[in-house]
Computed example of a mutant assay.
Amino acid sequence: MRIERLTNDAIALLKQLIEIPSFSSEEDKTALQIEKWFQNYELEYQRTQNNVWAINKYFDKDKPTLLLNSHHDTVKPNRGYTKDPFKALVEDGKLFGLGSNDAGGCLVSLLATFAYFYNQKDLKYNLVIVASAEEESSGQNGLNSMLSVIPKVDVAIVGEPTLMQLAIAEKGLVVFDAKVSGTPGHAAHPNNNNAIYNTIEVLKWFESYQFEKSSESLGDVKMTVTQINAGKQHNAIPAEVDLVIDVRVNDQYSNQEISDILQQESPCASIVPRSLRLNSSSIPVSHELVQSGISLGRKTYGSPTLSDQSVLSCPSLKLGPGDSTRSHTADEFIYLQEIEEGIDLYIKLLQQVIK
């Protein structure tokens, strides 16, 4: 199959996807558009809720399976947009539009790559592709729901904007709800146990706390207090203060270990994780996927941002066209050349591994 045609069709598909609103859990219309793309290439596929997926034509259950994955949901556009977020506009080699960079460019590039290998015989790996939903919201009906549906996965490439560099590790995420307690009372009377004042020392603790284990690729665990809430009226001292703490976990800890440490050591009245399922992820530098990328001039690094890698239990590599710093920004865009180079590099990387 000609790479030039695949590239042109991938860009055309991305333009179509940009112009279809697809907020998390509302991706039914973009899923339909992706189905049409499979139909146009005469590729057998299935749809599970808003996830569209397929396996290569000569799938062999005795071979290991490589997952290609990216998502077609988006965040909502912010107020800084000066261009229509749902209008695919090309200016100076840039394709503007919501979801163009995160992660539409990656998705259509992986779809093109899958189509390139779909009909090829005697591959060393099976291929399965999932155009997944609900990545931006870490929803229950996204890639995590597909792992019991698709064939068992041995290794994965997750398409997110990395400038086509090799993100060999990714931080996990745990969000905690915490409480600082005190004695409620009238503001006019003395109170030596004001929950709001007690929070000052608690905030200092979170600001200065350091987890012992650092990671070569991901650095330190990063813990940040992101929300604080207390009180309902001006003349009443509240009984407690609510905090939200965002913890980005390196590959030296499981999310459960982070939770255990904070529950034992933090000076809060209570601290409870919302979920422990979004763990850190990684792939050994020695893995043939990584070595293939390095041979093509790609560099390795650790990613601080969360993706669908967090729900995978197998080794996974984050790799894709576009730049993560453009994600969720106003007037989001991706360079057309990035998509062209992305498809070319995906194919070259896989040729060295699965052929």
Rank of each mutant, 00 (worst) to 15 (best):
P184Y: 11
L166T: 15
G182V: 12
I150V: 03
G185W: 14
L147Y: 05
H186Q: 05
I150L: 15
V158M: 04
I150D: 15
T162S: 04
V149M: 12
V174P: 00
D177I: 11
L163H: 14
F176A: 14
G172D: 08
A156Y: 09
G159D: 00
K171N: 10
T162K: 04
F176G: 08
G182T: 09
A178V: 10
H186W: 11
M164K: 08
E170C: 03
S181T: 13
M146N: 05
I150G: 10
V153F: 12
V155Q: 00
P184R: 08
K171T: 08
L163F: 06
H186M: 02
V180Y: 02
G172I: 04
E160M: 01
K152R: 11
F176V: 08
A156N: 10
A178P: 07
L166Y: 13
F176I: 05
I150H: 09
V153Y: 12
K152N: 07
A178Q: 10
L163M: 12
M164T: 03
L163E: 15
V153M: 11
V153Q: 05
L166S: 04
V155H: 03
L163C: 15
D154L: 14
K171F: 03
K171D: 05
V153K: 02
I150N: 06
V180A: 00
V153W: 02
S148L: 13
G159T: 03
P184K: 14
F176K: 15
L163Y: 03
A167R: 01
I157Y: 08
V155M: 04
P161G: 11
K152M: 14
S148H: 14
F176Y: 09
E170M: 06
V149G: 08
G172C: 11
L147T: 03
E160G: 03
T183E: 15
V174R: 13
V158G: 02
T183N: 13
Q165E: 06
V155W: 06
V174I: 10
A178L: 07
P184G: 08
F176C: 07
A156S: 06
K152G: 04
V175G: 04
E160P: 09
T183H: 12
S181I: 14
E160A: 00
D154G: 11
G182K: 08
I168W: 08
T183G: 12
D177E: 05
P161Y: 10
Q165N: 04
G182P: 00
Q165C: 09
V175Y: 07
E170A: 06
V180C: 09
K171I: 12
K179H: 14
M164C: 15
M146E: 04
V155Y: 06
S181A: 12
P151R: 02
V175I: 09
L166A: 01
A167D: 10
A169G: 13
D177Q: 10
V149W: 10
S148G: 06
A167G: 04
I168L: 00
I150W: 11
M146D: 01
M146I: 00
E160R: 05
L163I: 13
H186A: 05
G185A: 09
E170T: 10
I150Y: 11
H186E: 15
E170S: 04
I168Y: 02
T162V: 02
L147E: 15
H186D: 06
S148E: 14
